[in-house]
Design a protein around this nucleic acid. Structure first.
Lengths: 210, 210
DNA sequence: CGACTATACGGACCGACGGTCCGCTTCGTA
DNA sequence: TACGAAGCGGACCGTCGGTCCGTATAGTCG
């Protein structure tokens, strides 16, 4: 089961490649314009090495992304309020969405690359399911808290996965999509704080009377 | 100025190609799997003809899309309520979003193809700006109506383009993105009416206390 | 310390795709 | 009927993601 310990040079190469790719995506106009050959050349390794370590282009992008988002992920899973699990939902949801937005603002091209990687849809990426799950649960808990025990269909305890929270979570995340963020920042020329304020206001409206 | 009249066979070919492309996109698993060669072959024309008529892949997809969406566009621009201009904003906004959603449900692969065409972002497509403009104006009118004349910054009449309505329009449209719709329908297995109901509820929440 | 093996490396190579080019055909007109 | 322009088709090209295999090296064992 335990993977045979990796060779030292392989590990070093892995890091080199991740750094080179990160750099290239950050510099590039569009993520599509960054080819695997370029990344290999920039990292000073052969193309075969890239595909051996990461499987395919999507795998490489995902790896770079994971490395970048790790701190945020940790803050959400085990950090303090308002991002961490200890925060009350009403306060945590806006904080999470703001964090997602800020991450995409700080890593525009990388986020763009990830969302258009794979078979075309960001909804297949594991990290999307993760965000969505957290958000959905929080919304669900808010809804439960809101209506004492009344309202819903006959079944008291949640047998179904509560369709409304599911969709709302998708819709809120859709408002932070990388290409939308890129459009607002680049085409409409909105600055960072303006975008954050707009998103916060929107989230407030949606949660207002959940 | 007037373009020299087009040749009859060229017109016929144009229609043949549009029909073939439409068909192929509808049948395909993913729009990426439909190549220009395939479309040319299916239409019984040479590849050169495709590029001559439509410029590039994006141009072709756009043309197919325009042909499909024309009726809806017309209904919005000159039709009766609730889609047409005569409908009051509070009623027209949900109707428009539902219409967009239904269109994407009925033309999933084509919509998908369009949104991932171009330089990667749907926000550069002309039709997006069109939808967004209509929506933003409606939201703006609702906001103006809501607060008598109070609230906002010093300037009475709208000098700036009202940032809040602009973002809200983007966010609402984001909830109808083709890949999200595809995900809900294909991965989560939601049926058409369920999706429509969810979107309607979400829109209701957002407009609820604009 | 030297030999041996699993692991990793690199870059030539491949098939597919979007897009171009140019000689040939066909339409529409005089 | 003859002629020029508009249109056509498919061979051709450059690029890209991905594969393959002969070579080099890290780590281990005697």
């Amino acid at each position: 089961m335990a993977e045979r310990k990796a060779r030292a040079d392989a590990l070093r190469n892995r890091e080199t490649v991740l750094a080179a790719a990160d750099e290239l995506f950050a510099r590039s106009e569009s993520p599509r314009s960054v080819s695997m050959d370029e990344i290999a050349a920039a990292a000073g390794v052969g193309k075969g090495t890239l595909f051996r370590r990461f499987g395919d282009r999507t795998g490489l992008i995902r790896a770079v992304f994971e490395a970048r988002i790790e701190p945020l992920r940790h803050a959400v899973e085990a950090g303090p309020a308002p991002l961490g699990p200890s925060a009350p939902p009403r306060e945590r949801v806006p904080a999470l969405l703001d964090a997602v937005l800020c991450f995409k603002l700080d890593n525009r091209h990388l986020s763009l690359a990830l969302e258009e990687a794979g078979s075309g849809s960001p909804y297949q990426a594991a990290h999307y399911a993760w965000w969505h799950g957290i958000l959905r649960d929080l919304l669900e808990r808010m809804r439960d808290a809101a209506d004492g025990t009344a309202d819903g269909p006959a079944d008291g305890t949640a047998a179904g996965p509560a369709p409304e929270s599911d969709f709302t979570a998708h819709a809120l995340l859709a408002a932070t999509r990388a290409d939308l963020v890129e459009h607002l920042a680049a085409q409409e020329g909105m600055d960072r704080e303006r975008i954050r304020a707009q998103l916060a206001a929107f989230v407030g409206t949606v949660l207002g009377q959940g």
